[in-house]
Design a binder for these strands. Structure first.
Lengths: 155, 155
DNA sequence: ATGGATGCAAACGCTTTGCATAAAT
DNA sequence: ATTTATGCAAAGCGTTTGCATCCAT
């Protein structure tokens, strides 16, 4: 995948500073995630979106690049339950996720109380804290309304 | 896998009440989890332990039985990060997990404050709450000591 | 020329499934 | 007789890897 000769991309600089080459594939992935901040995507989705925009890149390259970006700290890999591994831009802000099990929609939230308790609990158990996974699963308002319409209108 | 003609097993009754047949395989799995309350096992581990105790059962049967038990509410399937899907007895008590990323040891905890916040947050976002996944990952005290011995003794 | 990055295909680990057989009601 | 469960082998899915090639320095 060759570099498209477009205007200078902010992602490129950051990549080089992190010691990566800043190849077209790396730029494409990081750039996509930066442009969709607060989006959550599977590796395959990211691959598909980039392909849709004209640059073709192999799926295994997408995985390799994502792993590099995670290691370099640009991207976070969140596991929201079985077979639900998503990538998001690492903004540095601690946050957790709400997941609608019907439509798959994902929202972010951050609760200082929970965050404080987490630290306290890790300390209490003597755990040198590395990371956390917190996701609340449920049915979002829209899906609940669709499933149990408040007043099914006659047609 | 035929029923071993042992003494009446508490698991059997519960299974029948839940509408399952209470076959040898079902009893073996549920019984194992009941005898190791607060244990956390992969499907393969459960399969191996049961095989080790003499009853041979196919791995796919183990998966099928585990799924039945989850659906019937006897067992919970907890996903603790990627490729870490474990089964535990469902005791009805809400709890979360601490995971040592070095030795894999798992501890349970339950924090009323966190639990309260969870409910509040789900409500605030209009999410009909179904379940949650919370795991704290880190290095447990024992592993930390092994990695950074406070005073490496000369041999 | 060197070391990293890529494409491709093949392998991986975990989990599920199709199908024929066997067991329970 | 009918439904449900089992073993076995094969397929599924998401992800990783080996290897030859390619690209950037």
């Amino acid at each position: 995948m060759p570099h498209p000769s477009s205007s200078p991309i902010p992602a490129l600089d950051a990549l080089k500073r992190a010691g990566l080459l800043g190849t077209a594939a790396q730029v494409a992935v990081l750039d996509y995630l930066q442009r969709t901040e607060h989006g959550h995507f599977s590796a395959e989705e990211i691959h598909r979106r980039i392909a849709a925009s004209g640059d073709r890149m192999n799926l295994s390259t997408t995985y390799r690049v994502l792993n590099q970006l995670v290691e370099a700290g640009f991207v976070a890999n969140v596991s929201l339950g079985k077979h639900h591994s998503l990538y998001e831009l690492n903004t540095g802000e601690v946050h957790d996720h709400l997941v609608c099990v019907v439509c798959g929609r994902i929202e972010e939230f951050s609760d200082p109380t929970i965050n404080r308790r987490r630290v306290a609990i890790a300390k209490k158990f003597g755990l040198r804290f590395i990371g956390k996974t917190l996701a609340l699963h449920g049915v979002c308002a829209a899906c609940a309304a669709r499933a149990h319409p408040p007043r099914p209108r006659a047609k």
